[in-house]
Simulated assay, not measured.
Amino acid sequence: MWGQGFRVGAVKLVLFDIDGTLLISQGIGREAKRRAMTERFGTVGDLDNHAFGGQTDWGILAALLAPHGYSSADIGSEILDYQACMARHMKAIRGGYSANALPGTFALLAALQARADVLPGIVSGNTGATARIKLEMASFDPAAFPIGAYGHESPRRDDLTRLAWQRAQEHSQATIHPRDIFVIGDTPADIQAARAIDAVAVAVETGYAPRQSLLKSQPDFLLADLREFLAIFPA
């Protein structure tokens, strides 16, 4: 349980997932993937039946395209072009979709931004370019999250929390203790990604993962939504 490692005055890093944590985007990601995969790879594999929750876009492509002869390394060599292609398609169709901020998100961000000892960031399975589009669609300012690690950077979500931690220390020019890092997400994969760096795992029930699956993953905290976060965050 979090508590013993907290240090007064230390930099706190708060890393948010996007889909199911900050916002709900109503299917635009799946449709943009369909169009980008068709353009770049000529197939979408079993896209319609694939569950995205907690996975990175690189990992999703690797899983969907493995039966068609693509390795994870093959995906890695294509991922930047794929990111640009998917972002182009997402921009083209965004008028037909909505993205809505989840309860408590704007108030929480304002409270965190008011503190000099807190650094907000994103760890998302979305590519960096499509993450920005989704945030803007839901009226978030992407600049509110100076730290980020995204789904085009690794097939493994655990790598993204490590990368965000490294970038946060470089950004703040300070050593950030793992137990001063709060990783917030709506899937067991988010909890595991927090565990990978010994960070505080905060699960929220605003996504698609059943409550029991979140409890089984043993987060440090399980919240109904982000309106409850400040009650467990150090003042």
Results as ranks from 00 to 15, higher is better:
residue 3 G to P: 04
residue 9 G to F: 04
residue 16 F to K: 10
residue 19 D to K: 04
residue 20 G to M: 09
residue 20 G to V: 09
residue 21 T to V: 09
residue 27 G to M: 13
residue 28 I to R: 02
residue 29 G to T: 04
residue 32 A to N: 02
residue 32 A to Y: 06
residue 37 M to G: 01
residue 38 T to Y: 09
residue 40 R to F: 00
residue 42 G to E: 08
residue 48 D to L: 05
residue 52 F to I: 03
residue 57 D to I: 04
residue 57 D to P: 04
residue 64 L to N: 05
residue 69 G to Y: 05
residue 70 Y to R: 13
residue 72 S to T: 15
residue 74 D to M: 05
residue 77 S to P: 00
residue 79 I to G: 06
residue 80 L to K: 14
residue 80 L to Q: 15
residue 81 D to F: 06
residue 91 K to W: 06
residue 92 A to R: 14
residue 97 Y to E: 01
residue 100 N to R: 13
residue 106 F to A: 15
residue 107 A to I: 01
residue 111 A to H: 12
residue 117 D to I: 13
residue 119 L to P: 06
residue 120 P to V: 04
residue 121 G to I: 09
residue 123 V to A: 12
residue 125 G to S: 13
residue 129 A to L: 15
residue 129 A to S: 15
residue 132 R to W: 06
residue 136 E to T: 12
residue 143 A to G: 03
residue 147 I to N: 01
residue 153 E to N: 13
residue 154 S to G: 13
residue 162 R to H: 15
residue 163 L to P: 00
residue 163 L to E: 14
residue 167 R to A: 11
residue 168 A to H: 07
residue 174 A to K: 12
residue 175 T to K: 14
residue 177 H to V: 05
residue 181 I to W: 02
residue 181 I to Y: 07
residue 183 V to G: 03
residue 188 P to W: 07
residue 195 R to P: 00
residue 195 R to Y: 02
residue 197 I to G: 03
residue 197 I to A: 07
residue 199 A to Q: 12
residue 199 A to Y: 10
residue 201 A to P: 02
residue 201 A to D: 08
residue 203 A to W: 10
residue 205 E to F: 00
residue 207 G to V: 04
residue 207 G to T: 02
residue 216 K to R: 11
residue 217 S to C: 07
residue 217 S to M: 05
residue 219 P to M: 02
residue 220 D to Q: 03
residue 222 L to G: 01
residue 226 L to C: 06
residue 227 R to G: 13
residue 229 F to L: 15
residue 235 A to Q: 14
